[in-house]
């Protein structure tokens, strides 16, 4: 394959990575924005979503689409409820103190991960995609006869991957409507701006926190349900999404939602493109250091505003 089609293939893979990443990072960003909580266990909620998808899909059986749709409905809700429960049980009692919250969520990370290891086991388990038709994509060429389209061998994408991109975009629009147009969004934004005043105006801040924590985890789980048919479910799969989501949230500016979306696209696309052309380890080293530098020299993120 020549460079042009190769680049297009990399960009398509990058778009799929971005789609999953944007959901995961959104969850992290909302939790940080509203609650000021850095949730280190976020990657494990992602992993739980994937593992639950496998459980649901194998329990239901039959046509792959049946299990997939069921998992799409069940897994995020279940993970969200679990997260809300953990918030009630642990985070609420330590009063969301920043240092202790980080330590507690590190503890939650190991509890979730190791419990999964004990029940689900150490194997990676695949989930069949609900539909998976391969579409060949055309590429153009300026030849001697002028502009011509051709179908290079290997340049293709599956319908399922296109579905992932579309689904992520739909969820994102839904989230935007929820946050800006509904009363729930209003309550969340009020809590974010000043939780004490919100409480004085009758907003049940404690319950809002639990819902937000659940919503954040649910978004991560949703991303995982979408990714499982491409990647397999494994008990250690939460590490990479956590790191990437952190990077996205930092680059986008902690707590800034539009920034998060743009950063997710940027990071996902470059991850897809870089890993096609360069050594993945070197790319990761450079990316990690760059992000740390962003946090050191531009703590408000690339798109965030300076705190007044």
């Amino acid at each position: 394959m020549e460079f042009g089609p190769h680049l297009m293939l990399a960009a398509l893979e990058g778009a799929v990575i971005s789609a999953i990443l944007v959901l995961t990072a959104m969850g992290l960003s909302i939790v940080f924005g509203v609650m000021r909580v850095v949730n280190v266990a976020h990657g494990e909620f992602f992993m739980l979503g994937a593992v639950l998808t496998w459980f649901v899909a194998t329990t239901i059986g039959g046509h792959p689409a049946l299990g997939f749709v069921a998992a799409l409905l069940i897994a995020p809700v279940l993970v969200g409820c679990l997260a809300a429960f953990a918030d009630r049980l642990i985070l609420k009692r330590i009063n969301y103190d920043p240092d202790r919250t980080i330590v507690a969520t590190i503890g939650m990370l190991y509890i979730i991960q190791q419990t999964t290891l004990m029940t689900f086991g150490p194997e990676a388990r695949p989930v069949p995609p609900p539909f998976n038709t391969r579409l060949s994509l055309p590429w153009f060429e300026w030849g001697e006869e002028g502009f011509a389209l051709f179908w290079p061998w290997g340049l293709s994408i599956t319908t399922y991957k296109l579905f992932v991109i579309a689904a992520a975009a739909t969820v994102l629009v839904g989230l935007w409507v929820l946050l800006t147009k509904t009363k729930i969004g209003l309550i969340m934004r009020a809590t974010q701006q000043d939780s004490e005043t919100a409480q004085a105006f009758g907003v049940p801040v404690g319950r809002v926190y639990s819902w937000v924590f659940g919503l954040g985890a649910g978004l991560a789980a949703l991303g995982a349900v979408l990714v499982v048919p491409i990647q397999q479910a494994h008990y250690l799969m939460g590490g990479d999404p956590l790191l990437l989501a952190f990077i996205v949230v930092i680059i986008g500016g902690l707590g800034s939602l539009p920034g998060t979306v743009i950063a997710a696209l940027l990071i996902g696309m470059s991850d897809g493109i870089i890993s096609v052309f360069f050594s993945p380890t070197l790319a990761k080293i450079i990316a990690t250091l760059l992000v740390a530098m962003v946090l050191v020299f531009r703590p408000q993120g690339l798109l965030g505003k300076k705190p007044s």
Binding site: V38, L289, V296
Partner: peptide
């Protein structure tokens, strides 16, 4: 010198990322 320019949560994340980079360097 670099990490101490930040504080609180950012300090934790920056140190975490430096360590992650160091780990990857070992693998590289």
């Amino acid at each position: 010198g670099l990490a101490l320019r930040t504080a609180g949560v950012s300090f934790m994340i920056v140190t975490l990322m430096f360590a992650q980079a160091a780990y990857l360097v070992v693998l590289y």
